[in-house]
Design a binder for these strands. Structure first.
Length: 259
DNA sequence: ATGACAATCAGAGATTGA
């Protein structure tokens, strides 16, 4: 089973890119972030025509996540538990019914800039809720993963210019510590488990020729629960997509599971 | 220190992103 995460930066602006990618790369499951669309306006029919089930959790203008799957989905839930007053659409879950069922969670973790301020407070509070949800998922003792745009640069080697991110919400010690707390519950960060060292990125800013200079950061991640980590066959970043016309500023990250 | 770039909503320019 091949699963991809992809922050598409606007599903309506990116629909041609998305359809071409789905046709060529054929993920069994795709978890999308920043659909920037309400559910009613999501272009679901053209995606269903390619054989996908479509589940969305959108909002007006910003954020929004979705799951596309060629395998049946069960028990779809929307919204990260822990704060009923949170109206931002950043979390969706479903069980993918392959040979081995896998609980998949798609997430768009808050950016958190500027620091300090309410947006950073929201990011850290959201990560606390994420940790609580992660603990609950682990207690099921069945294969699960959490993937998406974490807006976390885990280590200096995950940025071309780490010094430029030192005081940024994506790389501050408090951010990295909150991310490690979740990992330390027993999750495997799939890419890092497969590929050592730096120079691997999943986001390049549109500005200042960042792609041409390979001035990127690695912020899109797969966290696998233990039962899922045992199924891991491979993990890679599809960086070629960044070179196409009208690209997202993120590229897809993939895992292949023996499931 | 700032802006560069892009998408959205709205129908100009502010807001958000990372």
């Amino acid at each position: 089973m091949k699963i991809a995460t992809f922050n598409i930066n606007g599903v309506k602006a990116r629909i041609e890119t998305l359809l071409k990618w789905l046709e060529e790369s054929r993920p069994d499951v795709a978890l999308l972030q920043e659909i920037k669309s309400v559910d009613e306006n999501f272009p679901r029919e053209v995606i269903e025509d390619l054989g996908y089930t479509v589940e969305t959790h959108g909002q007006k203008g910003f954020n929004g996540v979705a799951i596309l799957s060629r395998l049946p989905l069960e028990d779809v839930t929307r919204g990260l538990p822990g704060d009923d007053s949170d109206e931002q659409a950043r979390w969706i879950e479903a069980t993918v019914m392959g040979d081995i069922p896998v609980r998949v969670c798609g997430l768009y973790l808050p950016n958190g800039n500027p620091v300090p301020g309410p947006k950073y407070d929201y990011k850290l509070a959201w990560m606390k809720r994420l940790k609580a949800r992660a603990e609950a998922l682990l207690s099921e003792e069945t294969p699960c993963l959490m993937t998406g745009d974490y807006n976390v640069i885990p280590q200096d080697e995950d940025a071309k210019r780490p010094e430029a991110w030192q005081k940024d919400a994506l790389a501050l010690p408090e951010t990295r510590s909150a991310f490690r707390e979740i990992l330390n519950l027993g999750f495997t960060e799939a890419f890092r488990a497969r590929v050592p060292g730096g120079g691997h990125y999943s986001f390049w800013d549109y500005q200042a020729g960042a792609w041409d200079r390979n001035d990127g950061i690695r912020i899109d991640h797969f966290l696998l629960g233990p039962e899922c980590a045992d199924l891991l066959k491979d993990c890679w970043i599809e960086s070629e997509l960044r070179a196409r016309t009208k690209p997202s500023d993120h590229v897809p990250v993939w895992v292949e599971l023996d499931a």
